[in-house]
Amino acid sequence: MSDGGVSPAELPRRSPVYRELAFAGARFVEAHGGAVAESFAIDAAAEIRTARRLALADFSLLPHLGFKGRETVDWLRRQGVDVGDRDNLAYRQSDGALAARLAPREVLLISDVAGRSGLCKRLAAAASIDEEIEAFPVPRGDGYFWFLVSGERAAAMFAKVCGVDLRTGKFSELEIAQTSVARMNAVVVRDDLGDTPAYHILGDVASAGYLWACLLDAMEEFDGGLAGLGTVRRLAGL
């Protein structure tokens, strides 16, 4: 299992795929109240090559939070969040977090890939005191798993499990597809790591293990592998 003594099961928060991560030989570090998989391979350079080719990473413990309601966008703007007018587009914040506008009345906030953004925490605290405002928080941090698929071969792999064309020429950076991935509902956001194409995938936590296995299976023919958050950070230049 892990070599650093951090055991996911002994910490308060657990990723829905922590058993899969441990089984795959993850090296865990303590962060965000749980154990995040920092790396898998002994050879860090090899793991970076994998991530450039095709890799799956688990972000589920990193901050993510949703908001719904008639006044969602106005309320978020008053809180200093940059949300544009177009649906199905993610808007980059100054701290690297993304505000993904899913619908006129729904926004999903995800932290930067290093997990340093304090935006979700700040907004969760702010929301609790604005009871009269029609913008209510949705606890996606607990309800949604969050994976990232990176690499030049990612779009080819997605073509097996997803009807939307995610090739980089057809699906721009920060564009969102809310669609069926391996026959389950998911939110896909393109957010490249430097010059490596990358896609966030978020969906119902109850199906996290299913989709994790589906994606690994779909990735096999493209020589895909696993990447830890340390590898993802290095690719993103963070």
Partner: peptide
């Protein structure tokens, strides 16, 4: 109207 063209199986 929100998501653009999608396979009919999503509806």
């Amino acid at each position: 109207p929100l998501n653009g063209p999608r396979n009919i199986s999503e509806f």
